[in-house]
Design a protein around this nucleic acid. Sequence first.
DNA 1: GTACCTGCAAAAGATTTGCATCTTT
DNA 2: AAAGATGCAAATCTTTTGCAGGTAC
Lengths: 140, 140
Amino acid sequence: MKQEKTHINKLISSYKLRATPQRIAVLEALRNLRTHPTADDIINYVKNEHPEYSVGTVYNTLETFTEKGLIKKIKTEKDVMRYDGFTDKHYHLYSKRSEKIEDYYDQELTRMIERYFKSKKIDGFKIEDIQIQINGEFNE
Amino acid sequence: MKQEKTHINKLISSYKLRATPQRIAVLEALRNLRTHPTADDIINYVKNEHPEYSVGTVYNTLETFTEKGLIKKIKTEKDVMRYDGFTDKHYHLYSKRSEKIEDYYDQELTRMIERYFKSKKIDGFKIEDIQIQINGEFNE
DNA sequence: GTACCTGCAAAAGATTTGCATCTTT
DNA sequence: AAAGATGCAAATCTTTTGCAGGTAC
Protein backbone atom coordinates (compact mmCIF):
# COMPACT_ATOMS: atom_id res chain seq x y z
CA MET A 1 0.00 0.00 0.00
CA LYS A 2 1.29 3.42 -1.00
CA GLN A 3 1.78 5.77 1.95
CA GLU A 4 2.99 9.30 2.40
CA LYS A 5 6.03 9.48 4.67
CA THR A 6 4.22 11.02 7.56
CA HIS A 7 5.65 11.80 10.95
CA ILE A 8 4.14 8.66 12.48
CA ASN A 9 5.44 6.63 9.62
CA LYS A 10 8.98 7.88 10.11
CA LEU A 11 8.74 7.38 13.82
CA ILE A 12 7.94 3.70 13.35
CA SER A 13 10.72 3.24 10.81
CA SER A 14 13.20 4.90 13.13
CA TYR A 15 12.58 2.07 15.57
CA LYS A 16 13.53 -0.43 12.89
CA LEU A 17 9.98 -1.61 12.38
CA ARG A 18 8.02 -1.91 9.17
CA ALA A 19 5.59 0.95 8.89
CA THR A 20 2.52 -1.02 7.93
CA PRO A 21 -0.90 0.67 7.75
CA GLN A 22 -2.02 -1.29 10.81
CA ARG A 23 0.92 -0.11 12.88
CA ILE A 24 0.42 3.45 11.76
CA ALA A 25 -3.22 3.26 12.79
CA VAL A 26 -2.36 1.86 16.22
CA LEU A 27 0.21 4.52 16.92
CA GLU A 28 -2.13 7.25 15.74
CA ALA A 29 -4.81 5.89 18.04
CA LEU A 30 -2.40 5.98 20.96
CA ARG A 31 -1.45 9.56 20.28
CA ASN A 32 -4.96 10.80 19.71
CA LEU A 33 -6.51 8.98 22.64
CA ARG A 34 -4.62 10.76 25.35
CA THR A 35 -6.35 8.76 28.04
CA HIS A 36 -3.78 5.98 28.43
CA PRO A 37 -6.17 3.63 26.63
CA THR A 38 -6.68 -0.09 27.02
CA ALA A 39 -6.10 -2.42 24.10
CA ASP A 40 -9.85 -2.49 23.71
CA ASP A 41 -10.08 1.30 23.46
CA ILE A 42 -7.43 1.22 20.78
CA ILE A 43 -9.17 -1.58 18.89
CA ASN A 44 -12.43 0.37 18.86
CA TYR A 45 -10.70 3.51 17.69
CA VAL A 46 -8.87 1.67 14.94
CA LYS A 47 -11.87 -0.38 13.82
CA ASN A 48 -13.86 2.78 13.38
CA GLU A 49 -11.78 3.65 10.34
CA HIS A 50 -10.60 0.16 9.45
CA PRO A 51 -13.03 -2.52 10.53
CA GLU A 52 -10.93 -5.14 8.77
CA TYR A 53 -7.92 -4.69 11.05
CA SER A 54 -7.86 -7.55 13.46
CA VAL A 55 -7.78 -7.74 17.23
CA GLY A 56 -4.77 -10.04 17.20
CA THR A 57 -2.80 -7.63 15.09
CA VAL A 58 -3.49 -4.76 17.45
CA TYR A 59 -2.31 -6.83 20.40
CA ASN A 60 0.75 -7.98 18.49
CA THR A 61 1.50 -4.42 17.47
CA LEU A 62 1.20 -3.12 21.01
CA GLU A 63 3.53 -5.85 22.19
CA THR A 64 6.06 -5.12 19.46
CA PHE A 65 5.97 -1.38 20.13
CA THR A 66 6.49 -2.01 23.82
CA GLU A 67 9.46 -4.28 23.25
CA LYS A 68 11.11 -1.74 21.01
CA GLY A 69 10.46 1.05 23.48
CA LEU A 70 8.13 3.05 21.27
CA ILE A 71 5.34 2.97 23.82
CA LYS A 72 4.91 1.83 27.41
CA LYS A 73 2.59 -0.43 29.32
CA ILE A 74 0.86 0.90 32.40
CA LYS A 75 -0.86 -1.34 34.87
CA THR A 76 -3.17 -0.21 37.64
CA GLU A 77 -5.12 -2.04 40.33
CA LYS A 78 -7.53 -2.88 37.58
CA ASP A 79 -6.79 -6.00 35.69
CA VAL A 80 -6.54 -4.61 32.17
CA MET A 81 -3.33 -3.31 30.71
CA ARG A 82 -3.20 0.27 29.60
CA TYR A 83 -0.82 1.91 27.17
CA ASP A 84 1.08 5.16 27.04
CA GLY A 85 2.05 6.45 23.62
CA PHE A 86 4.54 8.94 24.98
CA THR A 87 7.89 7.93 26.34
CA ASP A 88 9.41 11.21 27.37
CA LYS A 89 10.09 11.31 31.12
CA HIS A 90 6.89 11.86 33.04
CA TYR A 91 4.86 10.51 35.92
CA HIS A 92 1.24 9.54 36.37
CA LEU A 93 -1.56 10.92 38.46
CA TYR A 94 -4.07 8.17 39.11
CA SER A 95 -7.52 8.10 40.62
CA LYS A 96 -8.70 4.69 41.68
CA ARG A 97 -12.29 5.84 41.74
CA SER A 98 -12.52 7.28 38.24
CA GLU A 99 -9.73 5.10 36.82
CA LYS A 100 -8.37 8.20 35.18
CA ILE A 101 -4.66 8.46 34.50
CA GLU A 102 -3.15 11.83 33.70
CA ASP A 103 0.40 12.74 32.84
CA TYR A 104 2.46 14.74 35.27
CA TYR A 105 5.61 16.42 34.02
CA ASP A 106 8.09 17.59 36.63
CA GLN A 107 11.75 17.93 35.77
CA GLU A 108 12.56 19.28 39.18
CA LEU A 109 11.30 16.06 40.75
CA THR A 110 13.31 14.00 38.28
CA ARG A 111 16.46 15.94 39.08
CA MET A 112 15.89 15.63 42.81
CA ILE A 113 15.50 11.88 42.59
CA GLU A 114 18.46 11.43 40.29
CA ARG A 115 20.60 13.43 42.67
CA TYR A 116 19.36 11.32 45.57
CA PHE A 117 20.18 7.98 43.99
CA LYS A 118 23.51 9.19 42.68
CA SER A 119 24.74 9.41 46.25
CA LYS A 120 22.66 6.60 47.73
CA LYS A 121 23.28 3.27 46.06
CA ILE A 122 21.01 0.28 46.56
CA ASP A 123 22.92 -2.80 47.55
CA GLY A 124 22.69 -5.60 45.00
CA PHE A 125 20.62 -3.65 42.52
CA LYS A 126 21.41 -1.59 39.45
CA ILE A 127 18.82 1.12 38.85
CA GLU A 128 17.71 1.70 35.29
CA ASP A 129 14.58 3.76 35.66
CA ILE A 130 12.33 5.12 38.37
CA GLN A 131 8.56 5.09 37.92
CA ILE A 132 6.32 7.20 40.10
CA GLN A 133 2.58 6.93 40.35
CA ILE A 134 0.83 9.56 42.38
CA ASN A 135 -2.48 8.27 43.71
CA GLY A 136 -5.28 10.55 44.78
CA GLU A 137 -8.31 12.36 43.49
CA PHE A 138 -8.88 14.82 40.68
CA ASN A 139 -10.98 17.84 41.60
CA GLU A 140 -14.32 17.57 39.86
CA MET B 1 -14.56 -24.26 63.33
CA LYS B 2 -12.73 -23.69 66.59
CA GLN B 3 -9.70 -21.45 66.25
CA GLU B 4 -7.07 -20.03 68.55
CA LYS B 5 -6.97 -16.26 68.49
CA THR B 6 -3.72 -16.01 66.64
CA HIS B 7 -2.03 -12.86 65.48
CA ILE B 8 -3.27 -13.30 61.93
CA ASN B 9 -6.73 -13.97 63.23
CA LYS B 10 -6.78 -10.75 65.22
CA LEU B 11 -5.36 -8.83 62.34
CA ILE B 12 -8.24 -9.88 60.13
CA SER B 13 -10.83 -9.08 62.79
CA SER B 14 -9.29 -5.68 63.34
CA TYR B 15 -10.20 -4.86 59.75
CA LYS B 16 -13.83 -5.70 60.49
CA LEU B 17 -13.72 -8.94 58.54
CA ARG B 18 -14.76 -12.41 59.63
CA ALA B 19 -11.72 -14.47 60.43
CA THR B 20 -12.63 -17.59 58.52
CA PRO B 21 -10.10 -20.40 58.10
CA GLN B 22 -9.84 -19.63 54.40
CA ARG B 23 -8.99 -16.02 55.03
CA ILE B 24 -6.46 -16.94 57.64
CA ALA B 25 -4.82 -19.32 55.20
CA VAL B 26 -4.66 -16.70 52.47
CA LEU B 27 -3.13 -14.11 54.72
CA GLU B 28 -0.61 -16.60 56.06
CA ALA B 29 0.33 -17.52 52.52
CA LEU B 30 0.90 -13.87 51.69
CA ARG B 31 3.11 -13.37 54.69
CA ASN B 32 5.12 -16.52 54.21
CA LEU B 33 5.58 -16.15 50.48
CA ARG B 34 7.63 -13.02 50.54
CA THR B 35 7.88 -12.96 46.78
CA HIS B 36 4.89 -10.74 46.07
CA PRO B 37 3.01 -13.76 44.80
CA THR B 38 0.37 -14.07 42.11
CA ALA B 39 -3.11 -15.35 42.96
CA ASP B 40 -2.01 -18.64 41.50
CA ASP B 41 1.04 -18.85 43.79
CA ILE B 42 -1.24 -18.24 46.74
CA ILE B 43 -3.75 -20.84 45.58
CA ASN B 44 -1.02 -23.44 45.28
CA TYR B 45 0.35 -22.62 48.69
CA VAL B 46 -3.06 -22.77 50.29
CA LYS B 47 -4.16 -25.93 48.47
CA ASN B 48 -1.10 -27.69 49.75
CA GLU B 49 -2.57 -27.71 53.24
CA HIS B 50 -6.22 -27.38 52.32
CA PRO B 51 -7.02 -28.85 48.92
CA GLU B 52 -10.70 -28.22 49.50
CA TYR B 53 -10.37 -24.42 49.58
CA SER B 54 -11.56 -23.09 46.29
CA VAL B 55 -9.99 -20.86 43.70
CA GLY B 56 -12.94 -18.50 43.71
CA THR B 57 -12.68 -18.02 47.43
CA VAL B 58 -9.02 -17.12 47.22
CA TYR B 59 -9.75 -14.53 44.55
CA ASN B 60 -12.66 -13.15 46.55
CA THR B 61 -10.54 -13.01 49.65
CA LEU B 62 -7.72 -11.18 47.91
CA GLU B 63 -10.21 -8.67 46.57
CA THR B 64 -11.80 -8.17 49.97
CA PHE B 65 -8.44 -7.74 51.68
CA THR B 66 -7.41 -5.21 49.06
CA GLU B 67 -10.58 -3.19 49.45
CA LYS B 68 -10.17 -3.05 53.19
CA GLY B 69 -6.53 -2.09 52.90
CA LEU B 70 -5.11 -5.19 54.51
CA ILE B 71 -2.98 -6.01 51.50
CA LYS B 72 -2.07 -4.30 48.25
CA LYS B 73 -2.10 -5.13 44.59
CA ILE B 74 1.08 -4.63 42.64
CA LYS B 75 1.16 -4.14 38.93
CA THR B 76 4.02 -4.80 36.54
CA GLU B 77 4.30 -4.98 32.75
CA LYS B 78 3.25 -8.60 33.04
CA ASP B 79 -0.41 -9.30 32.75
CA VAL B 80 -0.99 -11.12 36.03
CA MET B 81 -1.72 -9.29 39.24
CA ARG B 82 0.61 -9.71 42.17
CA TYR B 83 -0.06 -9.11 45.82
CA ASP B 84 1.83 -7.58 48.71
CA GLY B 85 0.91 -8.70 52.22
CA PHE B 86 2.69 -5.82 53.90
CA THR B 87 1.31 -2.33 53.90
CA ASP B 88 3.91 -0.41 55.82
CA LYS B 89 5.49 2.31 53.67
CA HIS B 90 7.96 0.83 51.23
CA TYR B 91 8.90 0.80 47.57
CA HIS B 92 9.61 -1.92 45.05
CA LEU B 93 12.69 -2.95 43.16
CA TYR B 94 11.64 -4.72 39.99
CA SER B 95 13.52 -6.64 37.34
CA LYS B 96 11.64 -7.07 34.10
CA ARG B 97 13.89 -9.91 33.07
CA SER B 98 13.56 -12.09 36.17
CA GLU B 99 10.14 -10.72 37.15
CA LYS B 100 11.43 -10.47 40.67
CA ILE B 101 10.00 -7.84 43.00
CA GLU B 102 11.83 -6.96 46.19
CA ASP B 103 10.89 -4.54 48.92
CA TYR B 104 12.90 -1.39 49.38
CA TYR B 105 12.55 0.52 52.63
CA ASP B 106 13.84 4.07 52.66
CA GLN B 107 12.41 6.58 55.10
CA GLU B 108 14.78 9.26 53.95
CA LEU B 109 13.33 9.02 50.45
CA THR B 110 9.81 9.18 51.84
CA ARG B 111 10.63 12.27 53.85
CA MET B 112 12.28 13.96 50.90
CA ILE B 113 9.27 13.37 48.69
CA GLU B 114 6.80 14.47 51.34
CA ARG B 115 8.75 17.65 51.85
CA TYR B 116 8.80 18.24 48.11
CA PHE B 117 5.06 17.88 47.65
CA LYS B 118 4.27 19.89 50.73
CA SER B 119 5.65 22.94 49.00
CA LYS B 120 4.77 22.01 45.42
CA LYS B 121 1.07 21.43 44.92
CA ILE B 122 -0.36 19.76 41.82
CA ASP B 123 -3.11 21.80 40.27
CA GLY B 124 -6.47 20.04 40.29
CA PHE B 125 -5.27 16.99 42.12
CA LYS B 126 -5.27 15.91 45.74
CA ILE B 127 -2.39 13.55 46.53
CA GLU B 128 -3.15 10.60 48.77
CA ASP B 129 -0.20 8.35 48.28
CA ILE B 130 2.96 8.12 46.21
CA GLN B 131 4.08 4.82 44.79
CA ILE B 132 7.58 4.32 43.50
CA GLN B 133 8.80 1.40 41.46
CA ILE B 134 12.50 1.22 40.81
CA ASN B 135 13.23 -0.76 37.67
CA GLY B 136 16.59 -2.32 36.99
CA GLU B 137 18.57 -5.49 37.53
CA PHE B 138 19.49 -7.49 40.58
CA ASN B 139 23.11 -8.58 40.79
CA GLU B 140 23.31 -12.32 40.28
C1' DG C 1 12.42 -12.38 -3.28
C1' DT C 2 12.16 -12.98 1.38
C1' DA C 3 11.50 -11.97 5.88
C1' DC C 4 8.17 -10.20 8.25
C1' DC C 5 3.02 -9.02 8.96
C1' DT C 6 -1.83 -9.72 8.89
C1' DG C 7 -6.53 -11.76 9.47
C1' DC C 8 -9.10 -15.13 11.33
C1' DA C 9 -10.50 -18.18 14.64
C1' DA C 10 -9.47 -21.08 18.11
C1' DA C 11 -7.06 -21.56 22.53
C1' DA C 12 -5.24 -20.26 26.70
C1' DG C 13 -5.19 -17.80 31.09
C1' DA C 14 -6.90 -15.09 34.60
C1' DT C 15 -10.63 -13.54 37.13
C1' DT C 16 -15.62 -13.15 38.22
C1' DT C 17 -20.14 -14.82 39.15
C1' DG C 18 -24.57 -17.48 40.37
C1' DC C 19 -26.37 -20.31 43.47
C1' DA C 20 -27.20 -23.68 47.01
C1' DT C 21 -25.08 -24.73 51.29
C1' DC C 22 -22.56 -23.83 55.37
C1' DT C 23 -20.27 -20.76 59.24
C1' DT C 24 -19.11 -16.86 61.95
C1' DT C 25 -20.72 -13.57 64.92
C1' DA D 1 -30.96 -16.33 63.59
C1' DA D 2 -29.05 -13.41 60.20
C1' DA D 3 -25.58 -11.83 57.54
C1' DG D 4 -22.00 -13.05 55.26
C1' DA D 5 -18.64 -16.72 53.28
C1' DT D 6 -17.71 -20.86 50.78
C1' DG D 7 -17.35 -24.41 47.00
C1' DC D 8 -18.17 -25.58 42.62
C1' DA D 9 -18.61 -24.89 37.92
C1' DA D 10 -19.83 -22.16 34.35
C1' DA D 11 -19.17 -17.73 32.27
C1' DT D 12 -16.58 -13.78 31.06
C1' DC D 13 -12.88 -11.13 29.66
C1' DT D 14 -8.32 -10.33 28.07
C1' DT D 15 -4.56 -11.75 25.65
C1' DT D 16 -1.94 -15.21 22.87
C1' DT D 17 -1.21 -18.33 19.11
C1' DG D 18 -1.17 -21.26 14.66
C1' DC D 19 -1.48 -21.00 10.14
C1' DA D 20 -2.40 -19.73 5.36
C1' DG D 21 -2.03 -15.94 2.76
C1' DG D 22 -0.20 -10.93 1.89
C1' DT D 23 2.99 -7.01 1.83
C1' DA D 24 6.90 -3.82 2.92
C1' DC D 25 11.50 -3.28 2.03
